[in-house]
């Protein structure tokens, strides 16, 4: 089998084409938001959001409601809950999030274990991107559109509150409200990511491509674009690897992201060594 076949042959199947398209949409959404997640040190919140969605998924499943809608509602409720908790000072924010997220996740597992069939729940935990339906695909496209449009429209405000909340407040911007907006966008992004890589690995799609991009650029917008490109490539390569090796796609997608991160890390180290050996004149 030649290299081109390795890449193209799997896509003669409709389910692979749908999976690839879903992967691209989810990657684009998660990675562009991921830049803020990494820069604002919200990685833990991203992980928590993914886990707290589980009871929403299970409750929707048990009642035969639309599971994606259940996930979105649970995600938004959590996002606003975290926003509310972080404005209060009785408990440290990371402790509060830790309590909320493990509690919700435990509730999800409890509900899951009350049902006999575990097949669908395994997909929730570890992802099942080749099982994406056309309706889900349309929803992921809508989520990607909403997230990107909000990121573009609120770009200068999100950027400013991320690095200088004091100036933002002086000129009349509410940094906490903009944080709530980011949290809701993250909740939306997480719902797609759960389908692709599962609850357990979702935060990888938010964090790893953006962290890799942060190694290579010192500008926000290029960082978002690069993170999206890395995530798309990693998702497609991971999907193909999973097809050829017949292993879990969630695992191969996340591991490919990690390989990208390590590559970026090595590139940065090499670049720093080079600039030390031959410094640019005038610097």
């Amino acid at each position: 089998m030649n290299v081109l076949d390795w890449f193209l042959a799997p896509f003669q199947y409709t389910f692979m084409r749908t999976a690839a398209l879903a992967g691209v949409l989810v990657s684009l959404t998660c990675a562009s938001l991921g830049a803020y997640v990494v820069l604002r040190r919200m990685a833990f919140i991203g992980d928590a959001l993914a886990h707290t969605v589980l009871p929403g998924l299970v409750i929707a499943y048990l009642n035969r409601w639309n599971m994606t809608v259940g996930a979105i509602l649970a995600g938004i409720a959590t996002a606003l809950g975290i926003g509310w908790l972080s404005r209060r000072r009785e408990v440290r924010e990371d402790t509060a999030i830790g309590i909320l997220f493990t509690g919700m996740f435990a509730l999800g597992i409890l509900l899951m274990s009350s049902v006999r069939s575990f097949r669908d729940f395994t997909h929730m935990l570890f992802g099942y991107i080749v099982g994406v339906t056309d309706a889900q695909l349309r929803l992921f496209a809508l989520i990607a559109l909403v997230v990107l449009v909000v990121l573009i429209l609120l770009h200068k405000e999100l950027e400013l509150t991320s690095f200088d909340p004091t100036h933002a407040q002086v000129i009349g911007l509410r940094a906490d409200r903009l944080r709530d907006v980011l949290l809701v966008l993250m909740a939306l992004a997480v719902v797609g990511a759960i389908q692709a890589v599962g609850v357990v690995l979702t935060s990888a799609l938010l964090i790893v491509p953006a962290a890799a991009a942060a190694m290579l650029t010192r500008r926000l917008v290029p960082m978002m674009a690069l993170a999206s490109a890395i995530a798309i490539v990693a998702t497609l390569v991971g999907l193909l690897a999973s097809y050829h090796l017949d292993v879990s796609s969630g695992a191969t997608i996340v591991l490919t992201c990690i390989v990208c991160f390590l590559t970026a890390w090595v590139l940065r180290a090499l670049r720093e060594r080079l600039s030390r050996t031959w410094p640019v004149s005038g610097d």
Binding site: F163, H167, L220
Partner: peptide
């Protein structure tokens, strides 16, 4: 008159690692 008032905080209040020029 928010736009008429500029406040320069002490330097420590900014995230100077943020990727912005």
């Amino acid at each position: 008159f928010r736009h008429r008032v500029a406040y320069l905080a002490q330097r420590g209040e900014l995230d100077w690692h943020f990727p912005i020029s």
